[in-house]
Design a protein around this nucleic acid. Structure first.
Length: 263
DNA sequence: ATGGTGGGTAGCCCA
């Protein structure tokens, strides 16, 4: 079995102790991080190396965004795509060697898209849609078993948010974003592992806003995803969230997802 | 009822 995890950590330097706690508890073979918010030279390499995660692909930048894939399984890095053509660090792709041989693992942080769901009024929203469109064209050409994971910043299904009607005009749940996400899905036949293993309408939210979490109203959204090529999806055996991390001290606003594959 | 919280950076941007 090969287990892959993904987690938007919202600063890997601030939360390195939480990442260590998570890795010790869950022992995934590979962890994909988003929003590391640091350049590679300040990435806490030693903490990962000490736990056996001796293979690392860190695509960082100062202060914002940034993704990293750390692994106990050897891999070969093959891409750092810039789907906005603006230099932001939002993707790193690796190919596993050894266990899981041949699996391609694409770690992505899709832009949040600002507050106003209108391309004209809010350029960030347009950039989010363009990012999805470029990913769709990229996805159309993939011809190897691939796992696409990360913070997609979109909760596509009605049951992926705490209140569909209240959020239909809120960025992350608007029809225009969701349509763009379905075009991405259809370009490769991606299988949503979150919903393969936790069928709708079961609750499997991955993110709770810092602004409302204290209200304890459980206003979550499913923004983080693990999507597999059809052949690879047939080999997934389990999928779960580690929701308890949201109640740790000074937590990330996202929780980790873990999928196990029979490989 | 247009707030609220959090992280990184440098006197605001991003989520």
């Amino acid at each position: 079995m090969v287990s892959i995890a993904t987690w938007n950590i919202n600063s890997v330097r601030l939360r390195v102790d939480q990442v260590v706690r998570f890795l010790e508890q869950e022992q995934p073979d590979v962890l994909c991080l988003q929003e590391i918010k640091t350049e590679e030279k300040h990435f806490p390499h030693e903490a990962f190396a000490a736990l056996g995660y001796t293979h690392r692909a860190v695509h960082g930048q100062k202060g914002y965004h940034g993704v990293a894939t750390v692994s106990r399984i050897p891999f070969r890095e093959h891409a750092r795509n810039d789907w906005q053509a603006n230099g932001e660090a939002r993707h790193v792709g690796v190919e596993l060697l050894g266990p899981g041989q041949g699996m391609v693992l694409e770690n992505v942080y899709i832009p949040a898209g600002g507050d106003i769901p209108d391309r004209e009024a809010n350029p960030k929203f347009g950039q989010k849609l363009d990012f999805l469109e470029r990913m769709t064209r990229w996805s159309d050409k993939l011809d190897r078993p691939t796992l696409l994971v990360g913070d997609f910043n979109i909760a596509p299904l009605e049951c992926d948010v705490y209140d569909h009607k209240a959020l239909i005009k809120v960025v992350s749940h608007t029809p225009i974003e969701i349509e763009a996400l379905w075009r991405l899905r259809d370009a490769h036949g991606w299988v949503d592992l979150g919903r393969k293993h936790i069928p709708a309408p079961q609750r499997n939210w991955t993110w709770w806003s810092y602004r409302t979490f204290w209200q304890e109203k459980d206003r979550g959204r499913r923004l983080d995803h693990m999507w597999a090529s059809p052949d690879l999806a047939a080999q997934s055996r389990s999928h779960r969230l580690v929701e308890v991390t949201r109640r740790w001290d000074q937590p990330s606003d996202h929780v980790p997802l873990i999928t196990e594959f029979d490989l």
